[in-house]
Nucleic acid binder design. Structure first.
Length: 974
RNA sequence: GCCCGAGUGGCGGAAUGGCAGACGCGGAGGACUCAAAAUCCUUUGUACGAGAGUACGUGUGGGUUCGAGUCCCACCUCGGGCACCA
């Protein structure tokens, strides 16, 4: 998209009757362009660092106080530079953070606020493939266009801190961090770094060199017990590589032929398709890079308690990680022990059969000859089914008996072993003990196949009442299993496990786990749904792995040789396949570049030939640490100077609910769609960097705020095809497109629904300040709201009135009225007080309505009182910075108002002499009385009872009770 | 099925347990204009009433309270997340 011309497009110029200095779209654009140039030229938004290339000790001092300014790090989730540019739905969050940043700057803070571009990844590459241009070219032009559109909004970013994840100067450090992770292992027994985590906490990433040293010194045994020195070089490498936090492994992965690459679990939708492109995804064993995020599962859950995030997002992360506390239990069988995971070890006495996943490795040896045929048939049928079909919980349960039995360790019972596809190989051990009286799936399965369902808990009477049945332990009458706390029955054995009489599940679990451990039949265990993160992609437009291979496996490129540049090539298109061709194989574009893949290097032992890794990193790599690079974007020596990181992101005094403060970004604003992917990966990387001592903060994002989405009307014709929303006409509640009836729905703004509105249209029609104000005024930041172009004019009119109250529309000169009367001054101070509170609480919509109320009051008096012009200008500045700067200049100031102190309310003026109190009679509002604001209750009561309307409402009744709520109301109960 | 949110005028929304509907759009009426647009002014929850006013009113039903949009219980609807995870 070409930048538009801003001249000659104004409606206002078309009419000679319009006063020459009315706040028209043309004037707004003129003002906006001039101030944007001014800010640029004067580096108005540069935020000083305490150290490193951007250090500026003088600028860190507030001249008003002589003290260091407090710091504030405000961050937006950065955008992908898409080819279609911004629509007005994108900048909702950006405008909000800009208003907040500008307000906080005026409140004396040193604010780090900037913007970057997440430019690697599938969207950019697909756009390049579509246009036939190299992604580096399309990315650069898309970034340029988005920069222009964002700048036009007047966002107060520090331009020196802007980053682009595809810049070699940036991805050099992405590769460096990858190598930090590659060169680390997780020591679950190592004490935590002192400071934030609770005293005595264990578990920390450590440099892999320390692991090797322990093996060499013999202080850590090798897996098979042989002495380290007796292992071959290849064996030593395998042992070490098996510990790394980034590792290559042959494992079931999500192969997406339609995209030509493997994708992470988090990128597969619930119905088994890619979240990008919506192609089928198949589970296949492949050799791929993985990240050992599972070692951090506990900390990723526990540390959520330290974060100022909404419960909704915390819950989504907890659910994704899926921690489940229970036990591993071994059932002996003819084919060896069958291990199961259960989260209800206390129900072992009710385990009357076992179920194995059809793929379970023991199935073959367990199956008896007479059942072999049925088992084989069932396994074949299960293998032919897609995961998505197997995981449909509404299906009737299926399964077959293997003919084998296993021994329940708590009571010695011989229980039959079945296979069924409702048991998944990928979770737990791929085998379960079935407790039909206490688990819905087992209950259904037992009913289906006539297996016994003995009760092991006595459900409480209300449970039976709710089901309309007699209280009984005969489960034949039960409509569903019982789950919950209730006294155990038939749950004791002769070797010391006695649950009968107990009614606490937690206690039952504890006793059972202890018994299992003592009898070598199992142990307490925690299981997670979270899997290790599949980290490689067979695409072109991503960070190359800084890895080469020799005959033993992967070797890191030395830090000094970073970055490993993405090789130039014209054949950047990935090899994609028929989306349904499950048995195709990925082919990385980099694999085709022999000149690049075959390399001779001296890695300290002389020059040798190596082969480069030809995968690239996933989309998420660059966004896993970008907040850190913003802090020190030009540092060539480190990804961030430690002093700079500690200044902006270090732990503060107190965190959530008095808990330790983990550090991190002060305010992070973005959409809820990143609740799992980006936020989980980024937290993981940050914790590794913390463990290794590279950052002082335990978490990357202390406060997370999810802004809502802007929805827009979309219209479908009778063929269910979307039509251009701008060409739809409304007539008496019905919609039509070129005369044909269409139906309306609300959806995310965008190309596919043909309902996008470009900010450029709004700049042309109203100017950026009006657009900013409109987006902020339509509701609270965290709420989604529909876009209504026709509503925008309301904010435009407000700014016109405000301008007209201060500036003469004929001459453009300042034109103020006499000083304000007392009532107006009091209103001003109430407004200051309210606006401050609203902006502090990110309630920008109500701050705007308070400013409109003040301006409406002034408008009634004609001109703006001379003593109100400055405070109003300063208050509107965070919202409409261009207009405010222009007014500020007209008010005689030579300098920008960016760091001018935000007005402070005089507490004396917030107290009224007399107040009007509503009076209720029996809870109904009947009258209003005027009393002195400091009148005591007896006086207020007397005035209320003397009021004519109150007397009328009482109609002679004698008040029984009078409730006076000071400053609020009076209620007379008669 | 489970876990989160949210239901207030024609629309977007406002309301520390204390005058429901701030503010904006839209509507109605008026000013300016040859006329229109733009702009400005007045008005605008519903019903009844000429009017003062009266009654009703925050998804539904109950409860707590002097007083409930707000707190509690049950239900309904919509949005989001997870979903055979043992």
């Amino acid at each position: 998209m070409q930048p538009r011309s801003y001249s000659g497009c104004s409606m206002a110029h078309a009419d000679p009757d319009t006063p020459p200095f009315r706040y028209s779209a043309a004037l707004a654009q003129d003002i906006e362009m001039r101030w944007q140039q001014y800010w640029d030229a004067n580096h108005s938004f540069d935020a000083p660092n305490p150290a490193g290339p951007l250090a500026d000790p003088v600028a860190m001092i507030d001249p008003a106080t002589g003290q260091s300014r407090p710091k504030l790090f405000v961050l937006d989730m950065f955008p992908y530079p898409s080819g279609t540019g911004l629509h007005v739905g994108h900048p909702l969050g950006y405008i909000g953070t800009d208003v907040f940043s500008r307000y906080k700057r005026m409140a004396g803070f040193n604010v780090c606020y900037t913007m970057g571009f997440d430019a690697f990844g599938l969207p950019a590459e697909q756009y390049a493939v579509q246009t036939g241009q190299h992604p580096a070219i399309t990315t650069a032009s898309n970034v340029a266009n988005m920069r222009r559109q964002l700048k036009r909004l007047g966002l107060s970013h520090d331009p020196r801190r802007s980053i682009d994840t595809t810049d070699p100067g940036y991805y050099r450090w992405t590769q460096w961090i990858f190598l930090q992770i590659f060169n680390s292992w997780y020591d679950a027994d190592a004490p935590a770094r002192e400071g934030i985590r609770e005293p005595g906490a264990k578990g920390r990433a450590r440099p892999i060199s320390e692991l090797i040293a322990e093996f060499e010194a013999g202080s850590r045994p090798t897996p098979d017990g042989r002495a380290w020195a007796t292992l071959t070089a290849g064996e030593q490498r395998s042992v070490v590589d098996a510990h790394r936090l980034a590792y290559v492994s042959e494992a079931p992965v999500n192969w997406c032929p339609g995209l030509g690459t493997v994708v992470a679990n988090e990128e597969v939708t619930a119905d088994g398709r890619s979240d990008r492109g919506n192609f089928p995804v198949f589970k296949r064993n492949m050799r791929q890079w993985m990240m050992r995020i599972t070692t951090y599962a506990d900390r990723l859950i526990d540390d959520l308690d330290l974060l100022d995030w909404t419960d909704a997002i915390k819950t989504m992360q907890r659910n994704w990680i899926g921690r489940s506390d229970g036990a591993r239990v071994r059932f002996a069988s003819a084919a060896g022990d069958i291990e199961v995971f259960t989260n209800r070890p206390d129900t072992l006495f009710g385990a009357t059969f076992m179920v194995l996943a059809p793929e379970h490795p023991l199935v073959d040896s367990l199956t008896t000859p007479e059942h072999a045929e049925a088992v084989a048939a069932y396994r074949a049928a299960a293998a032919a089914k897609k995961d998505i079909d197997r995981q449909d919980a509404t299906r009737t349960k299926t399964g077959v008996y293997t003919g084998a039995t296993a021994t329940n360790p708590v009571n010695g019972a011989q229980v039959p072993v079945w296979i069924a596809d409702y048991v998944l190989m990928g979770y737990g051990t791929g085998a379960i003990m079935a407790v039909p009286c206490g688990d819905a799936r087992d209950f259904e399965f037992a009913r289906q196949f006539g297996l016994p369902i003995p009760a092991i808990q006595q459900p409480p009477q209300p449970w039976f009442d709710a089901h309309g049945i007699e209280a009984t332990l005969d489960t034949g009458t039960w409509p569903e299993p019982f789950v919950g706390d209730a006294p155990y029955v038939q749950s004791s054995n002769s070797s010391g496990l006695t649950l009968d009489g107990l009614s606490s599940v937690a206690e039952g679990k504890r006793l059972t786990n202890a018994w299992l451990e003592a009898h070598d039949a199992g142990h307490g265990n925690t299981n997670f749904k979270l899997r290790d993160w599949l980290f490689s992609r067979q695409r072109y437009w991503g960070e190359p792995f800084p890895i080469v291979y020799d005959e033993h496996g992967p070797i890191a490129i030395p830090d000094a040789d970073l970055p490993v540049l993405l090789p130039e090539t014209d054949s950047f298109s990935p090899r994609t396949f028929d989306p349904d061709d499950e048995f195709s194989n990925p082919e990385s574009p980099l694999d085709r570049l022999d000149w690049w893949t075959e390399v001779e290097l001296d890695l300290g032992n002389g020059a040798h030939a190596y082969r480069r890794d030809t995968n690239v990193m996933p989309q998420w790599a660059g966004s896993c640490w970008y907040e850190l690079r913003y802090l020190d974007p030009t540092n060539e020596k480190a990804f961030v100077d430690p002093a700079v990181e500690e200044y902006w992101m270090g732990p503060q005094d107190v965190g959530v609910d008095g808990r330790p403060h983990p550090g991190g970004v002060d305010l992070y604003v973005g959409g809820v769609e990143h609740a799992v992917l980006h936020l989980l990966y980024s937290r993981f990387w940050h914790k590794v960097l913390y463990d290794l001592g590279h950052v002082s903060s335990l978490e990357p994002y202390y406060r997370l705020y999810n802004q809502g989405m802007i929805l827009a009307a979309a219209f479908k014709d009778e063929r269910e095809i979307y039509v251009e929303a701008t060409e739809v006409e409304e007539h008496e509640g019905a919609f039509s497109f070129h005369g044909e009836p269409v139906t309306r729905e609300w959806g995310k703004m965008g190309k596919s629904l043909k309902n996008a509105v470009s900010p450029d249209e709004m700049y042309d029609a109203y100017g950026a300040d009006t657009l900013r104000l409109y987006e902020m005024s339509t509701g609270p930041m965290d709420a989604s709201r529909p876009w209504e172009t026709r509503d925008v004019v309301g904010m435009y009119r407000f700014l016109q009135r405000l301008w007209r109250n201060i500036v003469d529309e004929q001459t453009g000169e300042l034109a103020l009225g006499a000083p304000a009367d007392e009532a107006t001054v009091r209103l001003l101070h109430r407004t200051i007080d309210g606006v401050r509170a609203d902006l502090d609480g990110l309630r920008i919509n109500t701050a705007i309505s308070k400013l409109i109320e003040l301006n409406n009051h002034i408008t009634k008096g004609g001109r703006c009182p001379s003593d109100l012009a400055e405070p109003i200008t300063l208050m509107i500045a965070p919202l409409c910075p261009h207009l405010a700067e222009e007014l500020w200049a007209k008010l005689g100031h030579a300098d920008t108002l960016i760091r001018e102190p935000f007005p402070v309310a005089d507490p004396q003026l917030l107290i009224e002499d007399t107040i009007e109190l509503p009076v209720q009679v029996n809870g109904k509002f009947r009258s209003k009385i005027a009393v002195a604001s400091d009148a005591d209750d007896a006086t207020v009561e007397a005035v209320a009872l003397a009021d004519a309307k109150v007397i009328a409402a009482l109609a002679g009744a004698v008040p029984k009770k009078v409730i006076v709520v000071p400053g609020r109301t009076v209620n007379i109960v008669a």
